[in-house]
């Protein structure tokens, strides 16, 4: 659906996007993740043909963005950053205006608008003036607009920014529903969002794609070893010695908790080593109350990837 090859975008003062390439297949939901200022919005603007690129080539649905911009725009539903709308217009009026600009045939327009309003939960507010709607509703109007011409691809730039937690959940649910019919590229700097919605993650940092994979694969690649936490009632020096002696694992951290129990943080090749630890505790007669594998959050992964590059530069 999207094919980006070797795209570079320079602004007068800096290089915003530096020779990036990636592909998005039909039907995928891809999260575009990166710190603020990493080049997410610029990349999306390049995709929609809003900004010209300095080098490279972008294809959307088989059309070249530079050579056939109108064909590309007909196939993209784009929600720009901050969801720009005309505050003085009514919701229906705005959707009619946008549908007509995007070439929805007059005969189909009414039905199509009713459909997207239904999808986005706007049926009740059709007559309301956009400027008087809450941020959550405005975001939905933006989404309805991006859907109205039945695009193959949805490009959503930070669709939940500025919403309250309840509204965020609603918009996410909506996006998940949309994913059944559309290919979605979604940018955000909120990690939970990507975890909640996306199948695949593209991480961009300083204008470069630094990772592109599913969430689990990213974790696996970055965290070759797993960390196991264990709480037992035992003598610290003895316990550490015994665990290290097991092989395949070593104690990274050990400390005595306030209630006298001993807490161990163990690095091991695989989480399956927990069985060995259990057997050890039974054999040694250590009371055991906790034995868990630490879950890596996407946050850790993200920080590791972007920081890692930072150090390498």
């Amino acid at each position: 659906m999207i094919k980006v090859s070797g795209v570079t975008k320079k602004y007068p003062a800096r290089l915003a996007v530096d020779n990036i390439s990636f592909e998005v297949a039909r039907g995928e939901i891809v999260g575009f993740l990166g710190p603020n200022g990493a080049g997410k919005t610029t990349t999306m603007r390049l995709l929609t043909g809003y900004l010209p690129m300095n080098a490279g080539r972008i294809e959307v649905a088989g059309f070249d963005v530079e050579k056939e911009p109108h064909e590309v725009r007909r196939r993209i539903g784009y929600l720009p950053e901050n969801c720009p709308l005309y505050p003085e217009m009514r919701v229906d009026e705005y959707l009619r205006f946008r549908a007509s600009l995007k070439g929805v045939r007059p005969s189909a327009r009414k039905a199509r608008i009713a459909e997207v309003k239904e999808q986005c939960g706007l049926t009740e507010v059709g007559r309301r003036i956009i400027g008087q709607l809450s941020k959550g509703y405005r975001q939905r109007v933006g989404l309805a607009d991006s859907l109205v011409h039945e695009p193959d691809l949805l490009v959503l730039d930070e669709p939940t920014v500025g919403l309250d937690p309840f509204q965020i959940r609603q918009v996410r649910e909506l996006i998940k529903q949309l994913a059944e019919k559309h290919t979605i590229l979604l940018s955000t700097h909120i990690l939970q969002e990507v975890e909640a919605i996306c199948e695949r993650i593209l991480i961009i940092d300083n204008g470069r794609i630094v990772a592109s994979d599913t969430e689990e694969n990213l974790h696996r690649k970055l965290h070759a070893c797993s960390i196991i936490e264990m709480e037992i009632l035992a003598d610290q020096a003895a316990a550490v010695g015994k665990v290290d002696a097991l092989g395949g694992m070593n104690v990274r951290n050990a400390s005595e908790l306030a209630d006298g129990w001993l807490w161990l943080e163990i690095e091991s090749d695989s989480a399956a080593m927990r069985v060995e630890l259990y057997n050890l505790a039974v054999a040694e007669g250590w009371p055991l109350r906790e034995l868990t594998e630490q879950q890596h959050s996407l946050e850790d992964t993200f920080v590791k990837i972007t920081q890692g590059k930072e150090g390498g530069r």
Binding site: R45, Y50, Y78, P80, E81, P84, L85, Y86, P87, L101
Partner: peptide, 13 residues
């Protein structure tokens, strides 16, 4: 100012 220029110019206008 509103950013609607971007929304306009990313339609087939």
């Amino acid at each position: 100012k509103l950013g609607t220029l971007e929304a306009l110019l990313t339609t087939p206008v």
